[in-house]
Amino acid sequence: MDLFLAGLKEIAGASSQLTTWALAMLGGSVAVVIGSSHYSPANRRWRSFYFFLVPAWISLLVSVRAGNELSRSYLAALFTKGAAQDEAFNQINAYFQAQLDYLFYGVIALALWLTAYLLWWVIFRNVDCGEGDA
């Protein structure tokens, strides 16, 4: 039983770290949108790649939600026995998998945004900037 609870504790700790990463990526990407310390495309077509951030935000929020549910199931597993504890363990596994999956989807969407931004930055920035912005 002690090994079982130690394993659950490790999963809960890893989930907490994933939640921290998701919140950091979420906060950083929101700061990029509302901040003015970076170059942004003047052309509406190029600015449209910012829409890649919407699925990233949704995925990261779902990942955070799964981490929260995992924490609740972990607490339930600590205070139950038998079949209820087995059910909590199954929920913990499902929430951890969902947390990992949605964090991955969020990272993919952020990578697509970053790729589009870098392409604009390297190839088109001087063409798209007004006078004095280059």
Rank of each mutant, 00 (worst) to 15 (best):
M1C: 09
D2F: 13
L3A: 15
L3M: 08
L5H: 12
L5A: 07
L5M: 14
A6N: 14
A6R: 12
A6W: 04
I11E: 08
A12S: 15
A14K: 15
S15M: 01
S15W: 08
S16E: 10
Q17H: 03
L18A: 14
T20M: 09
W21A: 13
W21I: 15
A24R: 10
L26G: 06
G27A: 04
G28T: 06
G28H: 04
S29P: 02
V30H: 02
V30Y: 07
V30N: 03
V30R: 09
V32P: 00
I34K: 14
G35C: 07
G35E: 05
S36L: 11
Y39Q: 07
Y39N: 10
S40F: 09
S40H: 02
A42W: 06
N43E: 07
R44C: 03
R44M: 07
R44Y: 01
R45W: 03
R45F: 08
R45D: 06
W46Y: 14
W46N: 11
W46L: 10
R47N: 05
S48N: 11
S48W: 01
S48L: 04
F49E: 01
Y50W: 06
Y50Q: 07
L53D: 02
V54F: 00
V54N: 03
V54A: 08
A56L: 05
I58E: 08
I58W: 02
S59V: 00
S59Q: 00
L60P: 00
L61S: 15
L61I: 14
L61H: 04
V62N: 09
V62T: 11
V62Q: 12
V62K: 12
V62S: 03
S63F: 04
A66T: 06
G67S: 12
G67V: 03
E69D: 14
L70A: 12
L70G: 10
L70M: 12
R72P: 00
R72Q: 13
S73A: 15
S73R: 02
Y74M: 04
A76F: 03
L78K: 11
L78D: 05
L78F: 00
L78R: 15
F79S: 08
T80Y: 02
K81E: 15
K81S: 13
A83F: 02
A84P: 06
Q85E: 14
Q85H: 05
D86N: 11
D86E: 15
E87N: 07
F89Y: 14
N90F: 09
N90I: 08
N93G: 04
A94Y: 09
A94M: 08
Y95M: 12
Y95E: 10
F96G: 08
Q97G: 13
Q97P: 00
A98R: 15
L100G: 11
D101W: 11
Y102F: 14
Y102W: 13
F104V: 05
Y105W: 12
G106D: 04
G106N: 02
G106H: 00
V107P: 01
I108Q: 00
L110Q: 07
A111T: 01
L112H: 06
W113C: 00
W113R: 04
W113I: 01
T115D: 04
T115P: 01
A116C: 10
A116D: 00
Y117E: 02
Y117G: 01
L118A: 03
L118F: 05
W120I: 03
W120D: 07
W121A: 12
W121Q: 13
W121M: 09
V122T: 11
R125H: 09
V127C: 05
C129E: 10
C129G: 09
G130C: 06
G132K: 13
G132H: 12
D133Y: 09
A134G: 15
